[in-house]
Design a protein around this nucleic acid. Structure first.
Lengths: 344, 344
DNA sequence: CAAATTTACGCAACCGTTTTCGCTATGGAT
DNA sequence: ATCCATAGCGAAAACGGTTGCGTAAATTTG
């Protein structure tokens, strides 16, 4: 690899002049700069990354935190899309990102601490947001920059986060069903630990209230674990004396599991049960009938998160902002008006 | 952040002694080492990463290449699992990984070149393998270390790759169907550009031949693009005078799309059509009936790839090895013996 | 007990940049 | 002609480590 002094020699100048040429310093004449640029091109010179960051004391690198071991979550395309968005933006801005993951929360925390103390990372993007997170506590207490994808619960106001307006999205989705004539709409979520599920529930509740409908606790299912494990609870829901005619799932995967359970009980979709969900993953296109789902623009969530963190790295005194990425309800065949006799 | 001389002062030794203590150099007495270690612990010292890599001329970092823009591929959980495996191993070994992606192949190539020339990466893991890849050409011509997940076609023998035995897996899967009594088994793949699809086809062909069955070209569908776009071809396949009674799909997603198409033509699964696929993603558990699929252990593919690249970074004269990660056929409800009248 | 060896550590050079400071021309003002 | 800015560039000191080499003290050897 060519070094700065190789370039300097070839151009007949000193290393400092080459360095200044790279940053387009005004005190170098255009003539000299041109000579230097030619030499750089000729040698295919690119400044050594470690030397630069040692000298400037910044690493242009941040970590991306995947949630610690959570098998099924990893099946979800959301993370990959977000990562891709982050990667895209990084490449543009000449930043580097490092994926961090661990078997456990402690392992992940250790990696984070190590990245910080060794000066490798200038900040972190958390691909998840949960209520009580030791990692956030650490970052917050050390004053380390981080961006959340999801909603900040613990230190809102002082944390930067990128999210959808999940309340609004859920409200719209619920309203869609209500406007079709449904009066018995259920809500199911699996990841209670992830804050966005709570917002989606809030939006659901809001829409019900706005339409003057009562909130029936038996229509709200908040569980966790593999889809299969919920079959019992789902069966209970669908065999209620007044079973719901429509249901909102906080996730496509959950919706699919739910459809399985419903079909097992002889319910047809959408005739007997309308289903709407979130995330608009490939699944929603593959389901029969295709699933009405809210597209949350995961790619753009990633891009915005990267944009935010880089912006804050370069301008440390910027205030904590909150970015809302738009959503889009994609209507497909899984929702239809309720049958006459079942309408309220 | 504490520096090496902070530690040195506190321990009453020179920086070199601290450095040597870190690497457990034999020429430092155990007594002194202990004093230094205490000082390190007290200050929470961790060597500065950029300084270390500048001095030792190695960055303990490699890049992970996602395939350039390929919308649907990103929906697949394979990449995420592999990334997670890589991340897990990296953290253990104190290595850093950087995700690289781009809108186009050129963009990605540029990022790779930049990583190399700036000394940021010591190697790359390619999460995909395709026939004619300018990136591989570049890496090969510059003698840069890389590990493929998938099968190396262009420079086998000189490239390190981690893969499943796709031929064998496909052969077993096909045999499974043949042993059930199926005689008209079709094969469909979408990603012709990815080499593993070709191995899966080979395994399929092999099994047919071993059972003395003819290869019917009309039973082999190799296409690309979104699942929906294949509907025409699939319809043609299923309305053949002698339509297949079983079908192998190179991917779960494809299998789901295929089931949609089949159901649209009134075929029931598995009674009228047995379906078996690859990848064993969450999808295969969510399908009705659940899908028989080959689990390829994506997590371990990632782990092995990381292990290989780190091993080769640290021992540059190691020979190119080839790692085969075991697969596992997960039998679920989507396959059953053909109905009498349809059996050969 | 002197010589030779080994042990245990420090000095200083180096890795490839950035950046402060200072030097040397040059040109304009006086 | 003298003085002062200013433009344009180089020397050298950081940045925080690693490592070859030198050397004093401790130990072994003859």
């Amino acid at each position: 690899m060519a070094t700065i002094s190789d370039v300097a020699k070839l151009a007949g100048v000193s290393p400092s002049t080459v360095s200044r040429t790279c940053s387009d310093h005004p005190s170098i004449s255009e003539r000299t700069k041109e000579r230097v640029r030619q030499a750089m091109a000729q040698l295919g010179y690119e400044p050594n990354f470690q030397a630069t960051s040692l000298a400037t004391q910044n690493s242009r690198t941040f970590g991306i935190l995947l949630p610690p071991l959570d098998y099924d979550a990893y099946q979800k395309s959301f993370y990959l899309e977000a990562i891709r968005g982050i990667g895209l933006f990084c490449n543009q801005k000449q930043y580097t990102n490092a994926i961090l993951t661990g078997q456990s929360e402690e392992e992940l925390l250790q990696s984070v601490q190590s990245m910080v103390k060794s000066g490798r990372a200038e900040g972190f993007i958390l691909l998840y947001a949960r209520e009580d997170d030791p990692i956030i506590d650490y970052l917050q207490s050390e004053g380390i920059l981080y961006v959340l994808i999801g909603k900040a619960k613990k230190f809102p106001g002082e944390t930067i986060y990128v999210d959808n307006d999940n309340i609004q999205a859920s409200r719209e989705l619920t309203t869609l069903l209500l406007d079709m004539g449904h009066r018995r709409v259920a809500y199911i979520s699996d990841e209670w630990e992830h804050n966005y599920a709570q917002d989606r529930k809030s939006g659901y509740l809001l829409a019900l209230t706005e339409h003057g409908l009562p909130v029936r606790p038996e229509y709200i299912l908040e569980s966790s674990g593999l889809p299969e494990e919920n079959d019992g609870k789902l069966t209970a829901l669908f065999t209620l004396p007044e079973r719901p005619t429509a249901i909102i799932a906080s996730d496509d995967v959950l919706a699919m599991a739910l459809e399985r359970a419903a079909r097992g009980l002889g319910l047809r979709i959408p005739e007997d049960l309308s289903v709407a969900a979130f995330n608009d993953s490939l699944l929603s296109r593959l389901a029969c009938p295709q699933l009405t789902s809210v597209n949350i623009n995961a790619l753009q969530l990633g891009i915005e998160a990267a944009s935010q963190i880089i912006n804050h790295i370069e301008n440390p005194d910027l205030l904590a902002t909150k970015i809302i990425v738009p959503h889009r309800i994609v209507e497909r065949g899984s929702c239809c008006p309720p049958r006459e006799k079942e309408a309220d």
